[in-house]
């Protein structure tokens, strides 16, 4: 039976909830409300004059084929970042989980990249793959491969995905490892005694038991790919070549802070907010059903 604690009156619960509500209101509702309000205007940068345009900003954006194309770019980018960072992290976590000697060192080393800020990570990767001085591009050159992410769209996308996933692998690794270690040994051993090979055990026992962690990470990583990869893109490609790596959040920045077009930028934030909201609902509605807690 579920146990319920019922407060008398509403004062105490309201008081207890207050800090959370205040923080959400100040840091989420207020700016989000501002964005929605601003998205209906075309202001000049200095705030000297402004024009009400209703849904004009949205109309302008959705009629722009380049803006629409950036949805696809964002979808590809986010999917790749999520899959790569989670896939590699899971693989490493499984290896680390089986390790007996030196696992501490191994784990520490794997967690390190998480401490690197996205912009710094971007610069590191940019230098490694710099078409002139990059170590990696130099080795690729020796192999006869002419690396040029300045003009090659696929290479540029690959590079920003790699740079964005790199730091994220550490974070995911931590969660996966904790998830793996929370699975009772006895269950796995029992399966092993019954003759189940590694893959069978993974598929039938580990993966289902790991699903809450996987689901959580998926939500978090998608949000990360949507919003926090800005620094990496800015330092490595600035959205180029052409618009190959211009994801939605990068366009919000460049229209707002480079182009001083605050109306369009606000409208884009609203669209982005909406997209991420829908994605999260979908994830909770459809994918969470397969999760075993």
């Amino acid at each position: 039976m579920e146990k319920r604690v019922i407060f008398k009156g509403w004062m105490l619960p309201a008081l207890l909830l207050m800090p959370q509500i205040v923080i959400t209101a100040i840091f989420f509702f207020y700016p989000a409300g501002q964005a929605i309000w601003q998205s209906m205007f075309v202001p000049d940068p200095f705030g000297l004059k402004t024009q009400f345009v209703g849904l004009g900003n949205f109309e302008y954006l959705l009629n722009d084929p380049y803006y629409r194309a950036s949805f696809l770019t964002t979808a590809i980018f986010s999917t790749l970042v999520t899959v790569v960072s989670m896939g590699v992290a899971l693989y490493l976590a499984i290896l680390a989980d089986r390790l007996i000697k030196g696992s501490g060192t191994y784990r520490t080393l794997l967690i390190w990249p998480y401490a690197v800020a996205p912009a710094v990570a971007g610069v590191l990767w940019m230098f490694m793959f710099n078409t002139r001085v990059g170590v990696v591009s130099w080795y690729l050159g020796l192999l006869g491969y002419d690396w040029n992410h300045v003009l090659n769209e696929a290479e540029a996308m690959g590079l920003v995905v790699a740079a964005s996933s790199w730091g994220r692998i550490s974070y995911n690794f931590l969660f996966f490892l904790a998830g793996l270690q929370a699975i009772p040994r006895s269950v796995i051993e029992a399966a092993a005694i019954d003759g189940a090979k590694f893959w069978t055990r993974f598929r039938t026992i580990v993966w289902p038991l790991l699903s809450p962690v996987t689901f959580f990470l998926m939500v978090v990583n998608v949000v990360y790919a949507f919003f926090e990869t800005f620094g990496v893109i800015h330092t490595i490609t600035s959205g180029g070549p052409q618009q190959a790596t211009t994801i939605l959040v990068y366009k919000v920045y460049s229209d707002g802070f480079v182009g001083q077009d605050l109306g369009s930028s606000a409208a884009q934030s609203v669209i982005l907010l909406f997209v991420v909201g829908v994605l999260t609902v979908i994830q909770f509605k459809f994918i969470e059903r397969r999760v075993h807690y």
Binding site: L151, S238, G239, G240, Q242, S254, V258, G259
Partner: peptide
């Protein structure tokens, strides 16, 4: 103009490639 330059950059990259 800063953004117009970005647009020009993008389009020229299409020519160079």
């Amino acid at each position: 103009f800063d953004q117009i330059r970005t647009i020009i950059d993008e389009e020229l990259e299409g020519v160079w490639s």
